[in-house]
Design a protein around this nucleic acid. Structure first.
Lengths: 137, 137
DNA sequence: GTGGCTGCAAAATGTTTGCACGGAT
DNA sequence: ATCCGTGCAAACATTTTGCAGCCAC
């Protein structure tokens, strides 16, 4: 389908390229409106999906909070904090050879893979320690 | 919380232990009722969550179809067919050392990880080939 | 008898869709 | 002029919740 330029799609894309974490459609909707940029929630949903399709961003299934969008479509890995449920990018590089290996091993045509680490982020670890301490006294 | 035995939870657990793929709550609901085992959808949801909590099964975010449940809580890897959207277990073993490595690299307390391979399953590859062929003639 | 578990229906949540209008090409 | 994109509200799919009665302990 031939896509036309639209002010709203540009708003969404610019917002996505500037964020550092991972956002829901609702997040984008609220952030843009807070900035005074009027846009409807349905349009945010539509454009996030279109931008995913255009490989500008990536839609990912959050382990507990529905779908979130990633500022890039480049494959990389994630850390999920089971305590605060936030999602972070992992610091290591993408291991492309896992794809070719799985390709041969499974008989599938593999495009890419993603790794999701489950754990507790430093912030929540500290909070837990503080709680442990306070519980002891 | 103290858990009491219930006929319905046993039904759900038995069903989960016997399946080979990955199922939604709706799937479990329909399958059990088809077998003549009366159970309500809300109870299926409740028990799937309880069983996850008890580490008998695992709730996973399907990349496109909401949540599905895995017959085991043992960490392992998955293959997702972007064509038919079915989810399969990967044939390779869990690499525990990825967790310790990420632990050191990130400063997080890592529990486990999962790898999701994206690709096209053999069945869909064949279908696509057939289509290509038919389109040519 | 207490308190968890169930079915049912209602509610809540998250996302998509139909439609008439406005804007890009 | 065409037809894609928008806002709005309604529709929709999925999951959760409140409640009264039932059942396990």
């Amino acid at each position: 389908m031939i896509r036309k330029h639209s002010k709203q799609r540009t708003l969404v894309l610019n917002y996505m390229k500037q964020i550092t974490s991972h956002v829901s459609a609702e997040d984008v909707f609220e952030a843009l409106n807070q900035e005074g940029k009027a846009i409807s929630l349905a349009t945010v949903y539509r454009n996030l999906d279109i931008l995913s399709e255009m490989n500008e961003i990536k839609k990912i299934a959050h382990p507990v909070n529905g779908y979130v969008y990633d500022k890039t479509a480049e494959p990389h890995y994630h850390l999920h904090c089971v305590c605060c449920n936030r999602l972070f990018d992992a610091p290591n590089a993408y291991v492309k050879k896992l794809d070719t290996a799985m390709n041969e091993q499974s008989g599938w045509h593999i495009y890419s893979h993603s790794i999701l680490f489950e754990g507790v982020c430093p912030k929540c670890s500290n909070k837990a320690d503080a709680n442990d301490r306070s519980e002891r006294f």
